[in-house]
Amino acid sequence: KITIRFQAIGGAPPILVKVFKISRNQKFSVLNKFLHKRVYSNRGNRSSPEPEGRKQLFLYLHNSFAPNGDEVLGNLFSLFKVGDELIVSYCLNVAFG
């Protein structure tokens, strides 16, 4: 298993628990689905504005690029980890074009 740390950027709502363990064999797209539930649930209780239009999330590594959804987390971890964590930033809009 590997450790993932989520980081809200560009005004995205923070999540309570930021660090998760996940199997190395999972694909990067799994993180989007996983985070989607957490970011877009209980939004009514928060002060941040409701998302407009499609509820999208954009995930980045090293605040610079988005791997393809089918890239394997274990592979990304071996190349892009910081310390012993893969840091994934998320944003409600495209942050790095």
């Binding site: 590594l61 090293h62 610079s64 690029f65 988005a66 791997p67 393809n68 190349l79 892009f80 790095f96 074009g97």
Partner: peptide, 22 residues
Amino acid sequence: NIWLNQIKESCFVQCGSAKPIM
């Protein structure tokens, strides 16, 4: 979108940062 992100990823692998392309 896909191509640009892959090029950035490749740049990061080579340089340890995506700065050259960004």
